[in-house]
């Protein structure tokens, strides 16, 4: 007895060790692991097969290769679609950034009670299936005579991304200390100068973050483009076309490129919007 207590590395002995073990959340960590594998398995499979040298989509791997990437980056159809998707992303970000900021600034001038109502209404489209917006847009475009094109799709993307931008910018302005503007005016600044030197630099990170989010939504979109883009096919439309002809290994490569693009946009957006807080 005396010998064991003397040699024990920590006082308390095995009881303490057991208690520590019990406190360690082994089971919950395992469960979270299962969920994560389930969530990411399709993506992991897709990314893995995009580097497979064989066109057969089955294990075992024949070998590592970049041939599918080479193929898509020399395919003018894919490249053109890629450019269209990027264009749509930039235009969507531009439109929603300007409208989102103006809208969010405008709503601050409205009485508190009305503000909640307007925020709720503008967030409502988030709950409406994109398909309904897409069909509605297609019908509306036909009525007013807008041809199906990438520009028509751009407007649609701006439409579905705007609520996100509006909410993100609105939330950042909600935390904005308006006495800062008073401080600027007190020091001699006009309203415009105060906006330019104080308000804008402080809300800009949130606006940029929201714009990145809008770009990611645009790149990701299939439904709106399907109904409104016509022959100006974006990346998701090209992929859909290929899926119809059977699973093609280039799909994995295109998919992986899109995955990198949208997740990095979303990641940057998340960083921007949290750094913008104060």
């Amino acid at each position: 007895m005396t010998a064991t207590t003397a040699s024990a590395p920590s006082p308390g002995g095995w009881r303490r060790g057991l208690a520590k073990l019990r406190r360690r959340p082994v089971a919950s960590a395992g469960f979270v692991g299962v969920v994560i594998v389930y969530l990411f398995a399709p993506l992991i499979v897709m990314v893995a097969f995009s580097f497979n040298s064989s066109p057969r989509l089955s294990f075992p791997f024949a070998g590592l290769s970049l041939r599918w990437y080479e193929e898509i980056f020399t395919d003018t159809l894919v490249l053109r679609a890629f450019r269209r998707s990027l264009q749509a992303a930039v235009v969507t970000a531009g439109i929603t950034g300007v409208l989102g900021l103006l809208g969010a600034l405008g709503i601050l001038k409205i009485a508190k009670r009305a503000r909640g109502f307007i925020l709720a209404i503008s967030a409502a489209p988030l709950a409406v299936p994109g398909l309904l917006f897409a069909i509605g847009l297609a019908i509306m475009y036909r009525q007013i005579g807008i041809e199906r094109s990438i520009w028509a799709a751009n407007l649609g993307h701006a439409l579905i991304a705007l609520p996100f931008v509006f909410l993100v910018v609105g939330a950042s302005l909600e935390r904005f200390r308006f006495t800062l503007i008073e401080a600027a005016q007190d020091l001699g600044a006009s309203r415009w100068h105060a906006f330019r030197t104080v308000t804008l630099p402080l809300v800009l990170p949130a606006v940029l973050g929201a714009m990145l989010l809008a770009a990611a939504i645009s790149i990701d979109d299939f439904v709106i483009a399907f109904f409104t883009a016509g022959q100006d096919k974006t990346l998701p439309l090209i992929m859909y076309g290929r899926v119809l002809k059977g699973i093609d290994p280039t799909l994995n490569a295109i998919g992986t490129v899109m995955l990198v693009l949208t997740t990095s946009l979303a990641f940057m957006a998340a960083r921007r919007t949290t750094i913008g807080e104060r």
Partner: peptide, 28 residues
């Protein structure tokens, strides 16, 4: 307020958080 010869020290200071101390003081 921007045309008055008064200046204010606010309760929560209201320093411009995106500027240096120097630029805060130099603002006026």
């Amino acid at each position: 307020p921007n045309k008055r010869a008064t200046n204010m020290v606010f309760q929560n200071y209201e320093l411009f958080p995106h500027m240096t101390v120097f630029n805060n003081v130099a603002y006026g």
